[in-house]
């Protein structure tokens, strides 16, 4: 049976204005709307479409994070995943959880669940690391196709179109493989209310990182989180002459 493992991350919703905590150790997350990382939605959608085309038989969604991560797992199930695994990581451990930890967890799960394909979003919109797919590929020593904008499957061979600087690259690889989804891969479906309700009946397996033998202790220390620099306000000049004087003053001409 061909199985796809799909990583989904719970992140602060893309439409929310991010604020830094007063102690500068992170961003405000309490009472802030969260949702599934948009690139992970694309990953789930691709896996579900492959299942609908009978190219794969089972889609397993995985999320690493606090108990609220169940919400995005539910969304993934509503979009069409068959079952889900929630690896609970919470509190200070979650704050310093890095792609290296997540990729070890996903790699271990892929072996335990006998997955043939791992699809993740190319990056999360909160930390923008863009490392997980690459590291899973490294740990498992599987072929890895990053930034996919098209995925075709032929028996156990994948033809993947990748978005690279200045164009597209087409690569062929054998399964098992790791893929990361880019923005143009597909248009994710909306998780409708009836499907969310139905998803409540689908099984979610709960694990901890310890169960998988993965050490999630901090590899980094957060020293300070800063707001981006505010763009300086412009000035309106009364006429062309003043504009030229100003430009000369600042050394632009």
């Amino acid at each position: 049976m061909t199985r796809a493992l799909v990583g989904v991350k719970r992140v602060i919703d893309y439409a929310v204005k991010i604020r830094v905590k007063p102690d500068k150790k992170g961003v405000v997350t309490d009472g802030v709307k969260h949702s599934m990382n948009p690139f992970d939605e694309i990953a789930i959608e691709e896996a579900v479409r492959m299942k609908e085309k009978k190219l794969i038989e089972e889609v397993i969604a995985v999320s690493c994070g606090p108990s609220q991560s169940q919400d995005v797992i539910r969304t993934a199930l509503a979009m069409g995943a068959d079952k889900a695994i929630h690896v609970e990581v919470s509190g200070p451990e979650y704050e310093t959880l890095q792609p290296v930890h997540v990729s070890k967890i996903l790699a271990k799960l892929a072996q335990e669940e006998k997955a043939d394909l791992i699809i993740v979003g190319k990056q999360a919109i909160d930390d923008d690391s863009n490392q997980t797919a690459q590291m899973i590929g490294g740990i498992l020593d599987w072929p890895t196709g990053t930034f996919c904008s098209k995925i075709e499957k032929n028996d156990s061979e994948l033809t993947v179109t990748r978005e690279v600087d200045g164009g597209l690259e087409v690569v062929k690889m054998k399964m098992p493989a790791v893929l990361s989804a880019d923005l143009r891969l597909n248009e994710p479906r909306y998780a409708t209310l009836p499907n969310i309700m139905k998803a409540k009946k689908k099984p979610i397996k709960k694990l901890t990182a310890k169960d998988l033998g993965v050490d999630t202790s901090a590899r980094i220390e957060i020293l300070s989180v800063e707001e981006p620099q505010v763009r300086q306000a412009g000035v309106i000049v009364p006429d062309v002459d003043t504009l030229i004087v100003k430009l000369k003053e600042n050394g632009h001409v």
Binding site: Y14, A15, P38, I125, L183, E187, Y190
Partner: peptide
């Protein structure tokens, strides 16, 4: 509404990342 949400998300991401 579904189309609106999808487009809005797509456009925001495209603007931010591409």
């Amino acid at each position: 509404l579904e189309a609106l949400y999808m487009l809005r998300k797509y456009r925001t991401l495209k603007k931010r990342y591409y």
